[in-house]
C-alpha cells in the first residue's frame, strides 16, 4: 500500500484541476479564434509553411493586379490601333479614287484635304492615353509622342529602340515579364512623321496627300509596285493589323494566366487554411471533452477533500 498524505491529496487535486483547466483554456481559445496556430510555437513548421503560402498568395495577387493594369493598357492600345486601321482603310479608298484619273483639280484638293483630316486623327489616336500614360510613347509615357512641328509635320518624341526606352515590360509572374506596349515608333511614326533628313523623307500619309493634291496618279498607285503610296500604305496597314493581333492574343494570354493565378491562389489559401485554421467539429468536440474533464476534476475534489476521519469521530 502506498501511504497517502493529506498534502499529497491536495497537491494532486490542484494539479489535476490546473491541468484540465489549462487544456480547457486552450480548447476555448482555439474554438473562439478558429485558429489552430495562434502563435508560432503551436506549430513551428506549419507556421513557416503558412507564412510561405501567404507570401506566394500576396505575390500572385500582385501579379494579378499587374496583369489587370496591363490588360487595360493593352485594350486601350488595341482599340486605338483598330481605329487607326479603319482610318487607313478610308485613306486607301480615297487613294484609289484619286488614282482613277477622272478627278478634276477641285476634286483632288478635296480628297487631299480628307487625307489631311485622317493624318490629324491618326496623330490624335497616336496620342491615346491610358490614365495619364501615353500608350504609344514607349517608356516616355508622360511625353506627347506625336507633336506637330513647325512645318505642320508630325514628329515622334517617344522612346525608341535605339535609346533602349521603347518597350514597357511588366512582371506577370516570378521572373516572367511581358511587353505590354506597341511603341509608336514602329507602328505609327512612319504613317505621319516625316524625317527632316538629309535626305528628307515624307511620311506615308503625307506623301499620299501631296501626290493626290498634285494628281500624280502613278506615284499613288502603280500595279505590282510596293513602292507606290498605296503599296506602302498597305504594308503599314498590315504591320498595324499584326501588332493588334499580337495585342489581342496577349490579352487572351493574360486572361488565361489570371484565371490560373486565381485557381492557384484559391488552392494555396486552402492549404494555408488547412494548417492555420482549426477543424471546427474537432475543436468543438475537444472543447466538450476538456469541459467534461474539468468538471470531473472539480467534482472529485469537492467529494474527496471534504472527508477525513474527523467526520466520523464522536
Amino acid at each position: 500500500m502506498i501511504r497517502v498524505s493529506s498534502e499529497q491529496v491536495a497537491q494532486n487535486v490542484l494539479y489535476g484541476i490546473q491541468d484540465s483547466y489549462s487544456k480547457l483554456s486552450t480548447a476555448i481559445s482555439q474554438s473562439n479564434s478558429g485558429l489552430a496556430i495562434q502563435q508560432p510555437s503551436d506549430n513551428p513548421a506549419g507556421t513557416t509553411k503558412v507564412l510561405d503560402f501567404n507570401n506566394q498568395i500576396a505575390d500572385l495577387t500582385q501579379y494579378d493586379n499587374n496583369m489587370s493594369t496591363a490588360s487595360g493598357f493593352m485594350s486601350t492600345s488595341s482599340s486605338a490601333l483598330t481605329s487607326i486601321s479603319n482610318l487607313l482603310q478610308q485613306a486607301n479608298q480615297i487613294g484609289l479614287e484619286a488614282a482613277n484619273g477622272t478627278n478634276d483639280s477641285t476634286d483632288l484638293q478635296g480628297l487631299a484635304s480628307q487625307i489631311g483630316d485622317i493624318i490629324t486623327q491618326v496623330a490624335q489616336l497616336g496620342n491615346t492615353q491610358y490614365g495619364s500614360q501615353y500608350v504609344f510613347a514607349g517608356q516616355q509615357t508622360s511625353t506627347i509622342p506625336f507633336a506637330q512641328g513647325a512645318q505642320g509635320d508630325y514628329q515622334y518624341n517617344g522612346g525608341t529602340a535605339a535609346s533602349s526606352d521603347s518597350a514597357i515590360n511588366i512582371t506577370v509572374g516570378q521572373n516572367q515579364s511581358m511587353q505590354i506596349n506597341v511603341p509608336g515608333e514602329q507602328a505609327i511614326s512612319s504613317l505621319i512623321c516625316g524625317s527632316a533628313g538629309p535626305p528628307a523623307v515624307a511620311s506615308i500619309l503625307g506623301k499620299l496627300q501631296t501626290d493626290i493634291a498634285d494628281g500624280d496618279t502613278s506615284a499613288i498607285s502603280s500595279a505590282n509596285s510596293s513602292q507606290s503610296d498605296l503599296g506602302q500604305l498597305s504594308t503599314a496597314m498590315s504591320a498595324i493589323t499584326d501588332a493588334n493581333a499580337t495585342l489581342g492574343s496577349q490579352i487572351t494570354q493574360l486572361t488565361n494566366m489570371q484565371n490560373t493565378n486565381k485557381a492557384t491562389i484559391t488552392s494555396l489559401t486552402g492549404f494555408a487554411s488547412s494548417i492555420e485554421d482549426v477543424d471546427l467539429p474537432t475543436a468543438l468536440v475537444s472543447l466538450q471533452s476538456a469541459q467534461t474533464a474539468y468538471q470531473a476534476a472539480l467534482e472529485s475534489a469537492s467529494q474527496t477533500m471534504q472527508n477525513s476521519l474527523l467526520n466520523y469521530l464522536k
Binding site: 496556430i37 502563435q39 508560432p40 507556421t47 503558412v50 507564412l51 501567404n54 507570401n55 500576396a58 505575390d59 495577387t61 500582385q62 501579379y63 493586379n65 499587374n66 493594369t69 496591363a70 493598357f73 490614365g131 495619364s132 500614360q133 509615357t141 511588366i170 512582371t171 492555420e276
Partner: peptide, 24 residues
C-alpha cells in the same frame, strides 16, 4: 505572427507597392 500584421506582411506590401509602381 502569423497575424497578417507582422514585419513579413509589411515587407510584402512594400515590395508589391514597388511592383504596382513599375506598371505606372
Amino acid at each position: 505572427e502569423p497575424s497578417g500584421t507582422g514585419i513579413g506582411d509589411d515587407m510584402t506590401t512594400f515590395f508589391n507597392a514597388f511592383s504596382t509602381l513599375a506598371s505606372d
